[in-house]
C-alpha cells in the first residue's frame, strides 16, 4: 500500500506551533514529504536555528504521521538549506499571524 502524499500533508496541517494555533504547513516549515512503502520521510526546517520548540515539533510530526493507517516508520530530516524566511508563509499563515498582532 502506498500512502498518498496528500494524506501526509493534511496530517501535517494538524501540527501547530506550540504558542499559536498556526500549522507548520502554513508556517512554511515543511520542505517535502515522501512515502516508501510503510515508511514516511519528512524534510522540515525551523524559523531559527535556536528554535526552542524543535524537539516538541519533531515529536508532534512523528506522532501525527505514525497514526496514519499503513505508516510504520517516520523519519524527520531537519534541513537548513534553503533557510526559512517569512516569504515561505502561506497566505493563510500570513493572515493568521497578522490577526495575532505579529507583523509579517
Amino acid at each position: 500500500m502506498v500512502i498518498p502524499e496528500t494524506e501526509i500533508w493534511s496530517a501535517l496541517r494538524r501540527v501547530t506551533d506550540p504558542e499559536m494555533p498556526i500549522s507548520i504547513v502554513d508556517l512554511g516549515l515543511v520542505y517535502g514529504v515522501r512515502a516508501h512503502g510503510s515508511a514516511v520521510e519528512v524534510d522540515m526546517t525551523f524559523t531559527a536555528i535556536a528554535c526552542p520548540a524543535m524537539d516538541m515539533l519533531i515529536d508532534d510530526v512523528r506522532e501525527c504521521l505514525v497514526e496514519l493507517p499503513g505508516v510504520r516508520a517516520v523519519k524527520v530530516n531537519v534541513v537548513w538549506n534553503p533557510p526559512w524566511t517569512k516569504s515561505r508563509l502561506t497566505a493563510q499563515g500570513r493572515d493568521l499571524l497578522q490577526s495575532f498582532g505579529i507583523a509579517v
Binding site: 535556536a50 528554535c51 526552542p52 520548540a53 524543535m54 524537539d55 516538541m56
Partner: peptide
C-alpha cells in the same frame, strides 16, 4: 541533556 533542550529552557 542536549543543546536544544537547554535552549528551550532559556526561551522559557
Amino acid at each position: 541533556p542536549t543543546i536544544n533542550s537547554r535552549l528551550a529552557v532559556y526561551a522559557i
